[in-house]
């Protein structure tokens, strides 16, 4: 595994231990930081997130990170709420988000149980971040809001409606599922990200 400086953005939004441990299992010790200089100088940046969107955006604002993230030039990986915050806006708390992906995040209708919680299958895989993952392999999801399918979708999943399981635009990557909790499939995603 390539030696590199991976920084996990720490903005008090949820459990980042698991993400850190997942990289440690791959032999990389990430730095957890909210310091702008540290983030800017990273080889790669992880933008995690668990929790409520408006609260999380507020926390980014308090840490003065809102302008920084969309300007990053190195590969950035948003995870779960991190991915949703990389979109234009989200219905959760009617929140304006970072605007990297040109799409609005919507809430699942209650036709089935919400949150979408558990293992579900990835399809329409477009390589890159998802190299080596076969169609219909399972990854672990926990979310009540979803990103519709867009041009930047690099993997889809289906729950109530088809939605984006992963996105990519330039140096910005994102997955709705939790690679740190998705067994071997998740390991492949993290390795692919490391090897970008």
């Amino acid at each position: 595994m390539k030696k590199q400086n991976i920084v996990i953005i720490d903005y008090d939004a949820g459990n980042i231990q698991s993400v850190k441990y997942a990289f440690e299992r791959l032999g990389i010790t990430p730095i957890v930081s909210k310091d702008k200089a540290v983030i800017r100088n990273a080889d790669k940046v992880i933008f995690p997130g668990v929790g409520e969107a408006s609260w999380a955006m507020n926390s980014l604002k308090e840490n003065d990170l809102i302008d920084l993230i969309p300007e990053l030039k190195q590969p950035v990986l948003g995870i779960c709420l991190g991915m949703q915050l990389m979109c234009e806006s989200t219905e959760e708390g009617n929140t304006k988000a970072l605007g990297i992906f040109p799409v609005s995040v919507k809430r699942f209708t209650n036709e089935q149980k919400v949150p979408h919680m558990g293992w579900n299958q990835l399809d329409d895989l477009k390589g890159g971040l998802l190299n080596g993952i076969k169609p219909s392999e399972f990854s672990y999801f926990v979310h009540s809001y979803y990103v519709p399918l867009i041009e930047e979708t690099i993997a889809s999943c289906d729950y109530i409606v088809p939605f984006s399981a992963a996105l990519q635009k330039d140096n910005f990557y994102a997955c709705q599922f939790h690679p740190e909790k998705s067994g071997d499939v998740g390991v492949k995603v993290l390795k692919n990200f490391i090897n970008l």
Binding site: Q17, S18, Y21, A22, E24, R25, Y140, H178, E180, K181, S182, G183, D184, G186, V187
Partner: peptide
């Protein structure tokens, strides 16, 4: 919990 989280890649 800490030890399990370090080891495990499922929820």
């Amino acid at each position: 919990v800490q030890k399990v989280a370090k080891e495990l890649n499922i929820p």
